[in-house]
Design a protein around this nucleic acid. Structure first.
Lengths: 191, 191
DNA sequence: ACCTGAACACCGTTCAAGT
DNA sequence: ACCTGAACACCGTTCAAGT
């Protein structure tokens, strides 16, 4: 007679998915593991989520949302464009290290893996676009922003994927990239 | 009595896996789809391969091997370091476009996905290391090579992942990155 | 209106039995 | 020595039946 009260919610499900991914990787996220975490049976999840891939996409979206907040905070730390670039790069790397598998979801290259909406990713990268404009001028802003984000994301992906040789000074290579890119972009003619 | 003759081989299995990935993505690669492709039943694959993850790793290794050949060929195209950098970048991008899902395997960021041996990847990147040495001097060679590969791979990953807005001039942004990086690295003091 | 058990199709993997 | 069918555990997903 009386309708059963809600035993979970979409935000709770997404949070559970995110925790599971960070603890045991993407393969650990099963409909059953998520259901168990929120105290429900797997079929019930389909009342709020379209399926596993849709859930993964929602998790990716949540990570991007957090990343946007992090980058926004980092971009206000200084007025000097070069210092701002460094702050953005460092906070991005720190975020990736703190959210390893969640971060991997954002730019997941595999064609079948569900991923975040490119528009959300672009929105999160807004602070990068602003500093690129200051550095290279509005004419080159977009290409400059692409160069920065591509480098930073590529570096972090390689690092987290274990593609740096043991004993390498990874921190130094990261600093080298920041200063090299910063100097090169600042040499562009501002328009 | 008489032992059954071999009905398939490891190279054939790896090639089948690679074709399947390129046609239908990583999720299309199942032990059954591979077995069917080589004319055998799924359990038979375990005579030559340790399991699905091991097979994926072998596919990744095969892709890296091809990539190494491609980059080696591109690196001999010119004597000028800047032209060589451009040639390497272009051939890497062309290779990634021609081997989308195979390329994604190389730097797969997901912690659980099987991936290529970092040493094979490093070997494939040898031509990049050489041009980095010429550009930035042996002192900065490693950090410079990291900057180049991180940028190029990050750019390609974003591009293949659909993380560029529609209507953007992606080719122009790629050229911008090449010239910017080339100029910046050449400004380093050679040692 | 939400939840559940049961069921279905499809995985990866193991293994005893065939040749 | 390689191959196979059968079996097992575990997925994602659907759906009729409960409250």
């Amino acid at each position: 007679m009386t309708p059963t009260p809600d035993r979970t919610s979409l935000p709770e499900i997404v949070a559970a998915g995110r925790n599971i991914i960070e603890a045991g990787g993407l393969s650990g996220l099963t409909m059953q593991s998520v259901a168990e975490r929120v105290g429900v049976r797997a079929p019930s999840l389909y009342k709020r989520v379209n399926g596993r891939d849709a859930l993964i996409a929602l998790v990716a979206e949540a990570v991007v949302y957090d990343l946007a907040e992090t980058l926004n905070a980092a971009s206000t730390s200084s007025a000097d464009p070069l210092a701002q670039l460094a702050a953005l790069a460092h906070s991005l790397r720190a975020f990736a290290h703190a959210n390893r598998d969640g971060y991997a979801l954002i730019f997941a290259p595999a064609s079948d893996t569900a991923t975040a909406d490119p528009r959300s990713v672009a929105a999160a990268a807004e602070p990068v676009f602003r500093v690129a404009t200051q550095l290279a001028g509005s004419q080159n802003a977009l290409a400059a922003a692409r160069t920065i984000t591509a480098w930073a994301n590529g570096f972090i992906t390689m690092e987290l994927g274990g593609n740096f040789r043991l004993g390498e000074d990874v921190d130094a290579a990261f600093e080298f990239g920041i200063t090299t890119l910063g100097a090169a972009l600042a040499h562009q003619d501002p328009v």
